[in-house]
Design a protein around this nucleic acid. Structure first.
Lengths: 222, 222
DNA sequence: TAGGTATTCGAACGTTCGTTCGAATCCTTG
DNA sequence: CAAGGATTCGAACGAACGTTCGAATACCTA
């Protein structure tokens, strides 16, 4: 039904079905990221791909399936690259660094897909939503188990690890709202800064805040 | 055209126009937060308020104006409460704590409005978008100037302060995706944890990460 | 109680949406 | 060149959308 060879788009080179599917989903991610999933129409997508409206239904059964594939793809991309890289690493600190670095690298190279994932995935339904949540949970569990290993069992219950994990995820997943490549540097730099802040805080912390570094005057001095 | 007294909704007590407007916008925030702004219809809102579809246009001129009012309201709420509280405080560390505490308190008490603000505000257009961005920028500038005061001029250029500010905003604004009151505690506890992590990291940091706390074995020990 | 304003409503308009379907076209294979 | 599957398309469908408008109702004041 879907053999390898098929025609190209602009006549440049031949494309397989899978290559064209990837092309369509990439454009879809751009359109969904820019206009928002529900406001973006298949007609907008058609304008972005150069194909006809109806032609897209050869590559996905519904608009929701397109959304699901975009989210699933970038989520698995992060998870699989991280797990592959982390195979040979035992030090939990280094594993944490790998997780953050991978997350940020993919975030910058697939910013539109990540925006779609963060913004629109939870509006999926049924099986689609269940599978995305399952993969998210696998990723979340990875982070928590690393944090537990770093902190050891000496203190910190599950609730504090949960808060720490969510704090870190929040910092990383917020990036698409503010990142500008010419100002903010590459993934390595972001990793240094964010992990630097998080790690010192997490390692030095016992749940109590690092307050009162100086006196606390109750009046304004100037 | 719009005098004070008007009729109530369920016949319980009298409502002023402003009270009913507030009621409508609150329900709208719930509907927008649950279904997403573009997927939610005025008919959904009508179901939530008990009013007719057309009746809502007595309280706003368009669906976009309703969105704008929700975002503007909760954003100004945070900013004004923080500025009022911070009036009498001079210590920048204490001011930072007030900013985080206020942000988290409002986030928990107005979670749906905050979700709408985080999720949908950037899809506004024209004057609405400009005003929201302006208020956001005022808020952002407040945080950066506090951070600059804390760190002093001895190191850290504007770019690092920007990254630190965005890191903190990310942690706080991500809350609506995971917060469960029975597990995660109140705003005070969240403030202690998040500010604890951030402050130790920010104070101790010089841009380089806190890496290599132990050795870094390249093989798995078990 | 009468008049007027504030508030609410039913019904409809024009537009846009996701999706379908049968026909047309392309491309590979024999 | 002929056949057949792979791919693309134009056209249309019913549904849902935001918004409008004139009429109806509720309420306050005189």
């Amino acid at each position: 039904m879907r053999p390898d060879p098929s025609n190209g788009q602009t006549g440049e080179t031949r494309q397989t079905y899978d290559q064209k599917l990837e092309f369509v989903l990439q454009r879809a991610a751009e359109v969904f990221a820019e206009r928002g999933f529900h406001r973006a129409s298949i007609r907008d997508l058609a304008r972005a791909t150069g194909m006809s409206l109806a032609g897209h239904y050869y590559y996905f059964q519904s608009k929701n399936e397109a959304l699901f594939r975009i989210c699933e793809h970038v989520l698995r991309l992060i998870l699989e690259i991280f797990e592959e890289r982390a195979k040979a690493i035992d030090d939990p600190l280094e594993r944490l660094r790998l997780l953050v670095l991978t997350h940020l690298e993919i975030s910058l190279s697939h910013m539109r897909e990540m925006k779609v994932l963060s913004h629109e995935a939870e509006s999926l339904r049924g099986e689609y939503l269940a599978r995305i949540r399952q993969t998210k949970k696998r990723y979340y569990d990875s982070l928590v188990s690393i944090l537990r290993e770093i902190r050891g069992d000496r203190r910190g219950n599950g609730r504090e690890l949960r808060l720490a994990a969510m704090t870190l995820f929040g910092s990383m997943n917020w990036i698409y709202t503010w990142y500008r490549p010419e100002v903010d540097g590459d993934a390595k730099r972001l990793t240094d800064v964010m992990l630097g802040i998080f790690l010192r805080g997490f390692l030095g912390g016992d749940g109590a805040p690092a307050r009162r570094a100086g006196r606390t005057p109750r009046h304004r001095s100037r």
